[in-house]
Design a protein around this nucleic acid. Structure first.
Length: 559
RNA sequence: GCGCCCGUAGCUCAGCAGGAUAGAGCAACGGUUUCCUAAACCGUAGGCCGGGGGUUCGAAUCCCUUCGGGCGCACCA
């Protein structure tokens, strides 16, 4: 257990003991122990930790909060918490705990021992799947996919640190209506390039990437497709294009630092009859009815506004039908939690999806949807419409080329998924040097530089066990305090599905380091102080590196 | 019309199941380098937390209402 959690538990325990003792001695009367918190006050003058327990008890005790706080304070057993120096009652009835300054000195040892695992929590014994991006394999990856990629991958890293067994998955929509249109578009382009005068489908994919793909097909197959039936031809071109697109997606995401454990094909669900099975299953359970030739799922039973079609009048299943089969498959694979990162434009899908899960007999809470608001792309102060079909927008690979993987990932993950995001391309290009990611990376590189200087000067960096940390001053203790928060911060980010917290955390830690660096010298004449500071630098660097690792951003040793 | 997200400093945004005096970056202004990387640091200025009610010891946070912005409400995915 990390030191912060440990001391929190100890403080909490001692308060409970004090309260129970007070009750036994008839100093106070209460029935239920409130669910109070041990928090870190924003203001350092309010101690290392504080609790609101007295305020929470005021009502049931019919006693002023400060009076309750005094009773607790007088009954606290200092022997139970050796690190406790003093307590103060403040404000409306807060109890502030001041700890002996050396309570954090165990931290560097823990960090050094855990290394790359520092920040992680014990195993939760739960399997969680994170599905993200899952872009349609009919076009290039756009800004929404980029944001989803950064958020999903970071979230998966956070969950892994938080003790979950995590699998990353990409769902390939290689079946259905869009694929048919894709096939028709490819065929039309092929025939056009081969000289036929035919109309391009009205809703077809008009992007240049389709033309490029067709040129590759012509290079490989020449005119041999002309003699085929339309069906054979469409199947060939679409399979060719899908293979190419999926390879493109895989490569681009890999360049964005994202690799998946599983690439799941929608088509398999159709081919193996899973979609038909799920319809039959739900029909047997009475959740499906027929109307106007189509089959409807009763999503209104689960709070949705209207029922949803699963089989169209033309006999073909909808996307929703295969998605139900897909999610059933996920649960059958044994995941305790299934998390999907979706764009806000899919939020209408959430209610009925959860409804379907429930209809199948699973707890709908095990399916969690992280909705992220859409990214609006600006160029020259004007919105660039994101359309997969026109292919006029900036793609992820172009973005990586222009601003770099690290800056792009940081930029996307820095903001809460809930907030809509304007991505100003001109700004991103011009100001890439001012991106906050460099601020953090620079902190890491600076520390490395100190170690280089130390080595050049023949200074041996002592192991944390041989160093006396009590010599460190307030700035160093602030850094240590922040570092101590790291596991908690990761756990909170995991609980809230809030990857942006890690970005903010590491910015704050880097800020404390830079401030310290500008005020104090690590390499100096006071050997004991130098030893302690060098060890602190190692602790800081490991924490920054681990945080950057979670964010999928490199930790350079030199800049 | 109904549903979801957002509204916090000039701009972009944090603010962890309500907590003490609301924070950061950028922009502005003024400083810091014979010394471990100035991609840094320090300081100044900047706010009716969209408006209005309510809940309570206590609200940026919860509830209601209203205004403004985004998204969704297909036999598309």
């Amino acid at each position: 257990m990390n030191p912060i959690q440990k001391i929190r538990e100890e403080l909490k325990g001692s308060i409970i003991s004090a309260l129970e003792k007070s009750r036994t001695e008839n100093l106070i009367a209460f029935d239920a122990m409130p669910d109070f918190v041990i928090e870190v006050p924003r203001d350092e003058g309010h101690g290392d930790f504080a609790t609101n327990v007295a305020m929470l008890m005021a009502r049931q005790c019919r006693m002023a909060p400060r009076k309750i706080a005094e009773i607790i304070s007088s009954q606290i057993d200092y022997n139970q918490i050796p690190q406790l120096k003093k307590m103060e009652i403040a404000g409306a009835g807060f109890i502030n705990f001041f700890l002996k300054p050396d309570w954090l000195v165990v931290l560097p040892g823990i960090v050094a021992e855990q290394g790359p695992r520092w920040g992680s929590s014990p195993s939760q014994n739960q399997k969680v799947q994170v599905e993200f991006v899952s872009a349609n394999p009919t076009g290039n990856l756009h800004m929404g996919n980029a944001r989803g990629g950064a958020i999903g991958d970071t979230l998966a890293n956070i969950l892994a640190y938080a003790g979950y067994e995590v699998e990353r998955e990409f769902y390939i929509n290689d079946a259905g209506n869009q694929i048919d249109i894709f096939a028709q578009s490819l065929e039309a382009r092929y025939l056009q390039l081969m000289g036929a005068k035919i109309e391009f489908p009205e809703n077809g994919y008009a992007g240049q990437d389709v033309v490029d793909t067709v040129k590759n097909i012509i290079r490989d197959y020449k005119d041999s497709l002309l003699g085929m039936t339309a069906e054979e031809r469409q199947e060939l071109v679409v399979n060719y294009a899908l293979k190419e697109k999926i390879q493109y997606i895989r490569n681009t995401l890999s360049g964005f630092g994202i690799t998946y454990d599983v690439w799941f094909n929608e088509k398999i669900l159709h081919q193996t009859g899973k979609v038909d099975e799920i319809i039959k299953n739900l029909t047997d359970k009475g959740y499906i009815y027929e109307e106007e030739g189509a089959w409807w799922f009763k999503s209104t039973l689960f709070g949705d506004e209207k029922d949803e079609v699963v089989i169209r009048a033309n006999g073909l299943p909808t996307y929703f039908a295969s998605d139900i089969a897909y999610h059933l498959n996920k649960f059958e694979r044994g995941f305790d939690r299934v998390i999907n990162v979706w764009g806000a434009d899919h939020h209408g899908h959430v209610g009925r999806m959860k409804g379907a899960i429930q209809a199948l007999g699973y707890d709908a809470n095990r399916l969690e949807i992280l909705l992220m608001q859409l990214v609006r792309l600006y160029r020259g102060g004007v919105i660039v419409r994101m359309s997969k079909r026109t292919g006029t927008t900036v793609s992820l690979d172009e973005l990586i080329e222009e601003v770099g993987k690290d800056a792009a990932r940081f930029f996307f993950v820095m903001r809460s998924p809930d907030s809509q995001m304007d991505f100003d391309l001109d700004l991103a290009k011009e100001k890439s040097q001012e991106n906050p990611v460099y601020y953090v990376q620079y902190a890491h590189a600076r520390i490395q530089s100190i170690f280089r200087q130390a080595k050049a000067a023949g200074v041996l960096v002592k192991g944390v066990g041989e160093v006396d940390f009590s010599i460190l001053g307030t700035e160093e203790m602030q850094i240590l305090r922040k570092i101590a928060d790291f596991p908690d911060e990761i756990a909170t980010s995991a609980r809230m599905l809030a990857p942006h917290r890690i970005a903010h955390y590491v910015l704050e830690l880097a800020g404390l380091f830079h401030s310290f660096y500008n005020h104090q010298r690590v390499l100096n004449d006071n050997k004991a102080l130098q030893d302690a500071r060098l060890a602190l630098m190692g602790t800081t660097q490991t924490t920054i590196r681990n945080a950057l690792n979670i964010l999928g951003i490199s930790a350079p040793e030199q800049m």
